[in-house]
């Protein structure tokens, strides 16, 4: 029993991280209709930037959690203005291919500059050690990842549902014509939203730095899992991404415990089953299937 509880807690911790990392992907699709294949590369850039900042300027994790998302937001704005915006009116496939190409370029550039073996990162002292929650043990850093990720997810959800800005953004995506008729400048929100999604990917990268290998390839495999998360949750749905993130974390943890070889395959089995039952994903809108 204790073992099951232990796996469940580890699954939730991993799941919170998946939720946070997938959030930006879901938002960018929801608002721009862009299937952003470069999300994994943005995540990687976040981690690499954190490692470089620690190495060169001695900026600790705490500073990186603040600084890197700002840098990534700016980078996202540049990418949107320079590249993504020109293809927005075309078939989504074009931006999918564009961001796929962008991923290859970014990964290769990082390899050229920093090699393939990866960069070191010292985890913060404050968060080393474990917490014992009635017999269930969790690394203190993972508890931090859990609390931090949940806080960010709640914050994003509140902004999107409870604030004027969030409502304008949602109106612009769900009913752009109606929003325009009401005098809302729909296009104005596209760039900052893309930047915001990129910033979230970078933030996940910073969080990953202490407990994952920081290499140019670190986003490749990870991005595939995130796509599964977003598809399970329903493309573009924020709540869906969060719920699916936790589901994937749990499936992976129990897979690792009881069917180790299939731990990753199970994630995609889950995805296939959900698509069969609900083609638009758990929280997807009907239109997505049309």
């Amino acid at each position: 029993m204790n073992a099951v509880l232990q796996y469940a807690v580890q699954g939730l911790a991993a799941g919170s991280f998946y939720a946070l990392a997938a959030l930006g992907l879901a938002i960018i699709f929801g608002v721009l209709g862009v299937v952003n294949f470069a999300h994994g590369a943005f995540y990687m850039l976040g981690a690499v930037t954190a490692a470089v900042l620690l190495d060169t300027l001695d900026l600790t994790l705490w500073w990186s959690l603040l600084v890197v998302p700002v840098l990534m937001f700016a980078f996202g704005v540049v990418v949107e203005r320079l590249l993504v915006q020109w293809l927005l009116r075309l078939d989504p496939l074009y931006n999918f291919l564009l961001t796929f190409g962008l991923t290859l370029v970014l990964v290769e550039l990082v390899k050229q500059k920093y090699g393939v073996s990866g960069l070191p990162y010292k985890p913060p002292k404050l968060l080393s050690g474990r917490v014992d929650l009635a017999g269930v043990v969790l690394p203190r850093y993972q508890l931090f990842v859990f609390l931090f990720s949940v806080a960010i997810c709640v914050l994003v959800w509140l902004v999107m549902t409870r604030t004027r800005v969030g409502m304008i953004v949602r109106a612009s995506t769900e009913k752009p014509d109606l929003a325009r008729a009401l005098g809302i400048n729909v296009g104005r929100w596209v760039t900052p939203v893309f930047g915001f999604g990129v910033a979230l990917a970078g933030l996940a990268g910073v969080l990953a730095a202490p407990f994952r290998a920081i290499t140019a390839d670190m986003g490749n495999n990870f991005a595939i899992i995130l796509f599964a998360v977003v598809v399970i949750g329903g493309l573009g749905s924020i709540v869906g991404a969060v719920v699916a993130g936790f589901m994937v974390g749990l499936v992976e943890a129990f897979g690792q415990a009881y069917a180790p070889t299939y731990a990753q395959i199970l994630i995609f089995v889950l995805m296939a089953l959900i698509i069969l039952v609900r083609p638009a994903g758990l929280f997807g809108r009907k239109e997505a299937t049309a």
Binding site: A14, Q142, R212, D217, A253, P260, A263, Q264, I265
Partner: peptide
């Protein structure tokens, strides 16, 4: 012995299981 997928990022539960 625990066979794991390759490549793989998250080893948390594999390690817990091995440690158990």
């Amino acid at each position: 012995t625990i066979p794991t997928p390759f490549p793989n990022d998250n080893f948390a539960t594999f390690l817990t299981k091995a440690g158990s």
